[in-house]
């Protein structure tokens, strides 16, 4: 390297062409990374612009607080609350199933299960989380509903209850694996200290591990619930298509997502008021899940304890 030129005076190492290449490559990769930003911008812009067409005709107040949703059949009404209540009802049932079961499974897997058992159970739960949601819809409609009908003969074929129960089953893996990660991150030294004081395994789990992992556990629940809010095919198939402002789980309802699918199925003319309703509903849905996700990340950042 001591002699940078060859005998005829030409530079021996010529890399100049490579410099612009390196620069161009970097910008190309940056462009790839920016696609994700553009996606977010695109989601916002496309939702807002099309929803704008809707809100110029229907006052936003009537939309947000109206209690009847009937955008196609006369008399027309554009109050979104029935769809919101449908979404929240199904989500609530799902959360009532998934949160306790998911957390209990996480505690079992992180504190009780021997390694070998955990290595068997975790992939099974992963499979559960990887099954397409139409399949869950099929299951809710053709198995869960008939089973419940044996106990409650009046139950409708499409109902919030079975959709919610299966939704819960669907998000168990998410709640359980995210909270298990949080619990596994609790330093072993804390557990040892608790055991050394004469605590039982249950006491160590409940009074040391869960509190120390609380931020991660809460985030897991929030993210799971946000997933439930956005879940589409399962509720489209099993929960019904009748927007109804009710909290009765035995009724047939319609969720926000199911409405979007229902309208997409028909070939509604683009740009019409009916067509734009799906963007108004989508915008609200987007904000609901955004608030939950940002909330989840905030919980971790704000209350997440850092251990070395």
């Amino acid at each position: 390297m001591s002699d940078p030129t060859t005998d005829d005076g030409e530079p021996r190492f010529r890399r100049r062409s490579k410099t612009w290449e390196g620069g161009a490559v970097k910008w190309l990769f940056l462009a790839c990374a920016l696609v994700s930003i553009l996606t977010t911008v695109g989601i916002l812009v496309s939702l807002v612009i099309n929803a704008w067409g809707f809100f110029t005709e229907i006052p936003i107040w009537d939309y947000l607080f109206g209690t009847r949703w009937s955008p196609i059949l006369k008399p027309r009404d554009y109050g979104v609350l029935p769809l919101v209540s449908g979404t929240l009802l199904v989500t609530l049932i799902g959360a009532l199933v998934a949160v306790p079961i998911g957390l209990a499974s996480a505690i079992f897997l992180s504190e009780y299960a021997p390694d070998r058992l955990r290595r068997i159970i975790k992939p099974v739960l992963e499979i559960l989380g990887g099954i397409p949601t139409v399949v869950y819809g099929y299951f809710a409609l053709t198995w869960v509903t008939p089973q419940i009908q044996k106990i409650l003969p009046d139950l409708l074929v499409f109902n919030a209850l079975s959709a919610g129960l299966v939704l819960g089953l669907m998000i168990i893996p998410m709640v359980s694996s995210l909270s298990e990660d949080a619990m596994l991150a609790v330093p072993r030294s804390l557990k040892q200290a608790a055991y050394a004081l004469g605590a039982t395994r249950l006491e160590v789990s409940i009074s040391i591990v869960v509190p120390a992992a609380l931020s991660g556990v809460i985030a897991a629940c929030i993210i799971g619930i946000s997933r439930a809010i956005g879940e589409t095919m399962l509720v489209t198939i099993a929960a019904g298509a009748t927007p109804k402002l009710t909290l009765n789980p035995l009724e047939s309802i319609q969720t926000m997502t199911a409405y979007i699918v229902q309208l997409s199925l028909g070939e509604t003319p683009h740009g019409s008021l009916e067509f734009n309703t799906i963007f108004a509903v989508g915008l609200l849905l987007f904000f609901m899940t955004l608030v939950m996700n940002v909330g989840g990340h905030y919980v971790v950042r704000r209350w997440g304890l850092r251990y070395e």
Binding site: P187, S189, L190, Q192, A193, A194, A196, L197, G198, A199, T200, E203, S207, I208, P211, A212, L305
Partner: peptide, 25 residues
């Protein structure tokens, strides 16, 4: 009783740390 190499207080209040062993026992 046992004291470990690295200080390992529970992420709780000072009072609750000491009271833990009282409570469980």
């Amino acid at each position: 009783g046992m004291v470990f190499q690295k200080p390992n207080p529970f992420p709780k209040s000072i009072y609750d740390n000491v009271a833990f062993g009282l409570k469980v026992n």
